[in-house]
Structure formats: structure tokens, C-alpha cells
Design a binder for these strands. Structure first.
Lengths: 218, 218
DNA sequence: CTCCTGATGTTTACGTTGTTCACATTCGCT
DNA sequence: AGCGAATGTGAACAACGTAAACATCAGGAG
């Protein structure tokens, strides 16, 4: 089988082509732009062909969303680099901040991809899906829980608060990304959103780790 | 003109009927259920009739969303009652907590209405729309900024932090409601979500008002 | 090498959706 | 009383998701 042969009756690797085409469409117009017909059209194939690889339109969207989720993981990883401080507590704190910064930066940079990544909102199992792992082999949710686990190991956070801390962090960052991307803040200038996001993330982390490099929350 | 006369050629008050039918549909299946055809069908009218009252399908959905937003305001107001402590600082703090509790309770009680209330996500102008006001004549956003303004007046919060504090509060509560309603937490049992939400709200408020009745954040 | 089977893509069709346009009906003002 | 504006109808169109019957091709069995 010759991969990428578009001349033959059979495509070669239509599933990958549909995912790629769907991701391009999502970047442009979010999850709603990932229409089954538009995706097959862009892949040079008839609409019904998609049903050989995806059970429904929704499954195609979810698969494209998993790709976007992997890019979200990569954005977080990129914002976690350079945390080479000597103090492990500082490093752990910076890694948690990197999760928030990377999450918000991805939403602001690629609102369409962010939209489909959180489309339909995945279940708890999807939070560990291999397709959604970044370059370090971890999903965005795992990167968050890893950072919090480090804080617990260092004694900076009571272990009993790990789960609810993860939910609070995720809620705050996700809420901000939503408001800034498709909410009332969507018309605000980008630099202002960056500053607001950075302050929100740092305020949240300060609140989680009381007495540690406190800065104002707000 | 006889209002509510469904026998005659003209409906009487079709706009209100469409909004009511649309709201019922939204309660059942969120914004996606508020189809133009389903809404007109339920109102006993042809699809094109809707275009005499709404410029497009999206405008109908936004108008229904404004109704839902007013109910959200009423939920917040209900959670703010009973804040009759003698200490004005305690009252102000409880009013802010009421915003978060009412927001989350509405999302959990009426996920469909919550979905369309935040549908398409309205602009900053919509945050002050009269159609979205509750019984006290204030929109949900105004109830939030009112509570924060009270805290500033009492000297519990620096005035320079009012705007970003509002954004942080909204982000956290909205993010939690989203995750709990249509996100990975959607299958969690209701009492657990209530407890998580209450802890998230109180942790957030504690972080905003440091040193005031602190409880654990997480 | 041939043939057959299963995988994969096409064609056609159906029902649904939002939207428009020409037309019908009715309200309210002169 | 009658006319114009407001409001509802009907038919039509394009786009959508989906299904069924059919066509084509890859790869293994004989």
C-alpha cells in the first residue's frame, strides 16, 4: 500500500488525512467548522468515506480534539522549560505556573484548536488518552496533577488537598481561557489578556501555597 | 389585538411565545436544542414566522439566553438572602460567596438553561442587558461587581484590584460550573459536586481576603 | 498466477436544518 | 371604508449527518 497516493481509488491513509484536514478546519473556526462533509471534501473523498474510519461525526470531532489536546500539552511543556532553579520548591512552583501559562497561551494563540480540544467536554478517561499526550508522554491533566504531586511531596501542600486543588486550578485557568477566548473578554487587546492571565495564574498559585512568595491576588 | 389567540392567522404575541418555547427546549437539551424549526413548531407556527421577530437563528438563541441569564441572577439573589450579620464585613463576604454559590447551583440545577445563558458567549454589553436582570434589577455580572465594590468600600480589598478580582472570581466559578456541567466532572455525584463547589468558592474568597476567616483552599 | 474475500471508497437517497422570497392575511390608522 | 404596514404561510434551496447498495482494490489461499 502506497501511503499518500491520492490518484488511486483507495486513499492510503484516509484516517490520518481526515484528522489533519479536520484539525486545519478547527484552527480556522473551532469545533463547529469540523463538518463531516467539509473534512471529507478537503481530503478529496466522498462524505460517506469517513464512516469507514469514524462511527459518527462526533467521533471524528473527538479524535481531532485529541490531537488539539496533545498540542495543548506541548504548549504547557514549552512554558515549563527553564525551571532550573536550585531550590526544588521554586522549581515545583514554576512548573505549576507553567501549566496555567501554557494553558492560557494555547487558548489565546489557537482559539479554534482550544475550542475543539475541550469540545463536548471529554470524560475523565480521555484525560489520560495516549493521543492527547505531549512530547513528554503526558496529557495536560497529567501535567497538572504531576505538578501538584510534586508540591505535596515537598510538603508545600497537604496531601488531602491534592484533588480539590487540581480541580480549583483547572477551573480557574479553564474559566479564564473560556472568558478570554469566546466570552466577554474576547475583544480585549491581547497584551492586556496576557497580563490578566499571568496575574490570575500567579494569584491562584499564591493562594494555594500561602506564605510562599506571596503577590496580590486579583 | 387578542393576546394568546392561537386560532387566528396572527398569533398575538409570537415573540414571547417563541422565547418561552425556546426556553423550554433549552432546559431539556441546552443551546443546541433551541432549533429555529423546533421552536416555531412548538409555537404552532411556520419556521419563517420567526424571522418577523428575530433576524436569525442565533439572535433567537441569544434572546433565550438572556432569559436564562435573568434566572441565573435570581439564583444568585436567592443565595444572597440571609446575609443579615451585624458585621458589614461579614455581610459583604457572604454576598460575594452567594454569587459563587448561586452561579454554581444554577449550573448544576439547570444545566440546559446555564448552557444557553452563556451561549456564544455574550459580549461585555450583554452583561448589563435589562433582559438579564433578576428581581433586584441587576444582572449576574452586576451582582458580582456590586459585591466586590462593597469589599473595596469596606477597605477589605484594594480598589486597584477590583477589576482583576472580578475576572478571577468569574473565571474560577465559571470554570468549575463548566467542568461540572459538561466537563470531566459531569458524572460525579451531585452532593460531591456541591461540596467541591462550596470549597472552591470559599477558598477563592479566602484567597481574595487574606487573613479573614481563612479556611483551606483546595 | 488466479481467484476470492474483506477492506475501503462512491453514489444515491432521505430527513433535518437555516434561510429567502413571493404571497396571504390581518391590524390599525386615516 | 379602505389602505398600508405588520405579521404569518408555502415552497424552495443549499448544506448537513447518515444509511444502503454498489464499485474498486489489496492481499492471502489454492
Amino acid at each position: 500500500m502506497e501511503v499518500g497516493n491520492t490518484r488511486s481509488y483507495h486513499h492510503g491513509d484516509l484516517r490520518a488525512a481526515l484528522l489533519s484536514a479536520g484539525y486545519e478546519l478547527a484552527r480556522g473556526g473551532g469545533a463547529d467548522a469540523v463538518t463531516l462533509r467539509a473534512t471529507t471534501r478537503r481530503s478529496g473523498v466522498s462524505p460517506a468515506a469517513a464512516y469507514r474510519h469514524f462511527a459518527s461525526h462526533e467521533e471524528l470531532q473527538l479524535a481531532v480534539g485529541a490531537l488539539a489536546m496533545a498540542d495543548l500539552a506541548r504548549s504547557i511543556e514549552a512554558h515549563q522549560t527553564g525551571t532550573d532553579d536550585a531550590d526544588p520548591a521554586v522549581r515545583a512552583r514554576q512548573r505549576l505556573i507553567g501549566v496555567g501559562d501554557g494553558y492560557i497561551a494555547f487558548a489565546l494563540d489557537s482559539p479554534g484548536a482550544f475550542d475543539i480540544a475541550l469540545f463536548g467536554l471529554f470524560t475523565m478517561e480521555d484525560a489520560f488518552a495516549p493521543e492527547s499526550m505531549g512530547d513528554t508522554g503526558r496529557t495536560p491533566y497529567q501535567l497538572l496533577t504531576d505538578a501538584i504531586a510534586d508540591l505535596v511531596d515537598l510538603g508545600l501542600l497537604p496531601s488531602g488537598q491534592a484533588q480539590s486543588a487540581a480541580i480549583t486550578c483547572w477551573s480557574t485557568v479553564h474559566g479564564f481561557a473560556t472568558l478570554a477566548t469566546s466570552g466577554p473578554l474576547r475583544r480585549h487587546p491581547r497584551p492586556e489578556l496576557d497580563a490578566l492571565g499571568a496575574r490570575t495564574v500567579r494569584g491562584l498559585v499564591d493562594a494555594l501555597l500561602p506564605g510562599y512568595q506571596p503577590s496580590s491576588l486579583g
